[in-house]
């Protein structure tokens, strides 16, 4: 039974497409393991569709497409659609569907398929595979801890997200199962231990912007503030 879920606001921003890649990967992977959140996301998508498309008074009133839109449609009807059918897309590259670390293979959630471009690195029982999300504000990784391994007690400058993908681990607060989604702020200290080994997805030094939405970061002034 998954005990820890993303809060509603994160799900909502995720559906709007306003979270950074690192965080949307986590929500998507969680939902793949959690039917409850998947259903919530489905409902939120319907609500967001209605809010985006139905309240669009302009399109209800105007009968004709504006000239730019008309010429786009004309171009698609005359050329583009035929070209698209004549040149089928490249076969779908399914990407990486499982990772192997310390002779143990794990299936990867679908969201990570095209994110695995690095090698595992690590010392002792802890291995890390860095994801290149292009975000300067945070670091996203897959983290593997071998059986009987632990991470020394630590705090975080920003917040830390841990999504358990496989196996189990425990800390001072609880024992976690695959799908558990833990967002800790800098006030929490913890020292996770695992008996049987585990694979997690982590984002560290994640600042405030997890809950603010990333479209705001595109604003140059916003960028300076962060």
């Amino acid at each position: 039974m998954i005990k820890y879920h993303p809060q509603h606001e994160l799900l909502s921003l995720h559906i709007k497409g306003e979270l950074p890649l690192s965080m949307s990967l986590a929500i998507s992977a969680h939902a793949e393991l959690c039917d409850i959140c998947q259903q919530k996301l489905n409902r939120l998508t319907e609500c967001e569709t209605a809010a985006t498309f139905d309240n669009n008074t302009e399109s209800n009133i105007s009968v004709d497409l504006d000239s730019e839109m008309s010429s786009l449609l004309a171009h698609m009807m005359q050329d583009t659609l035929d070209e698209l059918d004549a040149n089928p897309a490249q076969p779908y590259n399914e990407g990486v569907t499982e990772v192997t670390v310390k002779d143990q293979s794990y299936p990867l959630p679908r969201a990570f398929r095209h994110q695995i471009n690095a090698q595992w690195q690590g010392i002792g029982k802890v291995s890390r595979l860095r994801l290149n999300t292009g975000e300067e504000q945070s670091r996203a990784s897959l983290l593997h801890i071998a059986p009987q391994g632990e991470i020394p007690e630590h705090t975080h400058k920003g917040s830390e997200l841990t999504l358990l993908l496989a196996g189990e681990f425990s800390d001072e607060y609880n024992t976690y199962r695959p799908g558990d989604f833990m967002l800790l702020d800098e006030n929490h200290q913890h020292s996770p231990k695992t008996m049987t080994g585990c694979l997690c997805y982590t984002i560290v030094d994640a600042p405030l912007y997890f809950t603010k939405g990333f479209s705001k970061l595109l604003n140059p002034i916003g960028e300076l503030l962060y």
Binding site: G17, S24, L25, S28, A111, R113
Partner: peptide, 21 residues
Amino acid sequence: CFDMLRKVQHNKEDSFGDDIW
């Protein structure tokens, strides 16, 4: 839109939207 915003923000030609949703 997600992929286009990432292109603007990170100058990356990736398309991860359909993997995520």
